[in-house]
Design a protein around this nucleic acid. Structure first.
Lengths: 148, 148
DNA sequence: CTACATTGTTGTATTATACAACTTTATAGA
DNA sequence: TCTATAAAGTTGTATAATACAACAATGTAG
């Protein structure tokens, strides 16, 4: 029944976050942490954006993203383009170095997941990938509808 | 192909952790956080255990678990039983109050997930639950084999 | 008996985060 | 047009979860 599944999901998600958190910090995979990864991925895949927009996307405080952006800028993984329309604002653009690091990081993570999932069948991996993606979309939608 | 799935999993997991982290802290669901929840669940479901054993299970530093345990003890969600064989050690036992709070917390989380997943079919929920559980078991095994 | 190992605690540092105060710039209302 | 308010970002400060190191008490093996 669906209720049973929900209870399993509820518990397993808590465990899952714990496991993934230690998996991620296990190896720092170079200079990038999960936050930086998501930021870099976002501007690399979906175009450059300002601090505010990124904070909205990731449901983080603007100040948090501001610091993450500074850190990325300091490492020269991104640079700022002033917004000609609005002199308060700017957008973050990924640099070649940033693209390179992002790629390396992705590769390192994929290697790790490949090893963890080496006994899983293709089908299981595909299904899991789809459901994870669907969950992320779902939770994003559900968040958008709610009184934040 | 499996490689493609792995790349999706790799990215979606990072997003997933971000989403879940903000989902969990969104509402503090009472007095319990994720760490406390996992600790309480562990000793409730799998019997009482000492700080060392719990740290091993969750891949946390002993000092971290020690503090979490103190915090739970202070809230009277657990109590300590000295180990008669080893006077350095003790085990943590859940109290009735602890059981109650654990239950409430589980319920609150389930309500939240139920809402997020309300449009999902029974089958999808079941499959997702199974794969999450399987992933947690897999990652646990893979960890055990490795040079920690 | 001595040396080493183990369980747990506590001090300290780090990291990711939020909130609040602030600056600069934009916009809307009188 | 002037003024009040809103918005984009930054920086100061606080908190929470974590790790590492130093330590105390106890156990174990040579």
């Amino acid at each position: 029944m669906k209720i049973d599944s929900l209870e399993i999901i509820e518990l397993e998600m808590a465990i899952f976050v714990r496991r993934l958190t230690s998996l991620s910090s296990d190896k720092k995979f170079g200079n990038i942490d999960r936050s930086a990864y998501l930021l870099l991925h976002q501007i690399s895949a979906h175009g450059c954006a300002g601090v505010k927009a990124l904070a909205d996307i990731f449901q983080l405080d603007i100040s948090t993203v501001s610091r993450q952006a500074s850190s990325l800028e300091q490492k020269e993984y991104v640079y700022r383009i002033p917004d000609p329309q609005d002199r308060r604002a700017y957008t973050l653009q990924i640099t070649d170095l940033g693209k390179h690091e992002l790629d390396e990081y992705k590769k390192a993570r994929s290697v790790r997941f490949k090893e963890v999932l080496k006994e899983w069948s293709d089908e299981e991996c595909q299904t899991f990938a789809q459901l994870l993606r669907k969950f992320n979309i779902t939770i994003n939608e559900s968040r958008a509808k709610e009184p934040s």
